[in-house]
Design a protein around this nucleic acid. Sequence first.
DNA 1: ATCAACAGTATCCTTTTTGACACTATATGC
DNA 2: GCATATAGTGTCAAAAAGGATACTGTTGAT
Lengths: 130, 130
Amino acid sequence: MAKVRHTRFDCSPGCSVEAAIRLIDGKWKCVVLYHLLDEGTLRFNEIRRRIPSVTQRMLTNQLRELEDDGLVHRKVYAQVPPKVEYSMTELGRSLAPIISALKVWGDENIGRFGTPLAVDADQPRIRQST
Amino acid sequence: MAKVRHTRFDCSPGCSVEAAIRLIDGKWKCVVLYHLLDEGTLRFNEIRRRIPSVTQRMLTNQLRELEDDGLVHRKVYAQVPPKVEYSMTELGRSLAPIISALKVWGDENIGRFGTPLAVDADQPRIRQST
DNA sequence: ATCAACAGTATCCTTTTTGACACTATATGC
DNA sequence: GCATATAGTGTCAAAAAGGATACTGTTGAT
């Protein structure tokens, strides 16, 4: 059987890094987390406006997963023009060092590997413009 | 190539987070990075043995991407039983705080989501510690 | 002569993720 | 009556990721 030789992080007994990254893996999750950590409470469309290239469906998906993982709290107001507020839970806030480390690293190194999202129009990497 | 200044990021400051996470996104990348950070230099099959559930193809893929991103250095010895050594580049080592933050968080919270990777068959699917 | 070890490739296939688009219902403002 | 804003859903299709398996060519050991 799998004897645990590495008692620290190995993929069998407790791949804690894997576990952690699974929560923030997803095309938009970390961006959402960043904004919620940064601004506290945001409504659905406020988040959308901060992430222009996310679709409604995707944002909903990501928020639902974050909610299911207990990282984000979703507060629905029983109003007729709907109002839903998103904020970080305590558990979610405990991710702050990770998000922060990612941001620090990204800020310092972003010039190295190019644009993650479509910033320049002349590079048809993902989308083909019509 | 287009050096994108941070201010050019109209998709909000969260983009650098996004950029950073893209590098370590991938099912096995962070595990590979961990082992290379931990042990310095490893040969291909040494990495394989440390990550039993990764396939050859996947490991090759992940290593190639890490190499392309400049995080990992690949040194090929012109020998006839092939010998290839992998190690972290300086840039790769600069990721250490991120990997470390992920590990710290994961270690503290892994009981929350159960086993991230069911590697061996007789592991209980749901593991709860309290 | 056969086999294992090395570091991969190549091919096929399934699953997951993501995108595009249309649609819901209600209230307010014009 | 019509458009707008709200916070979504639903469906279909494409793309990407990942898994299984087989194969490469050489050397040294059995």
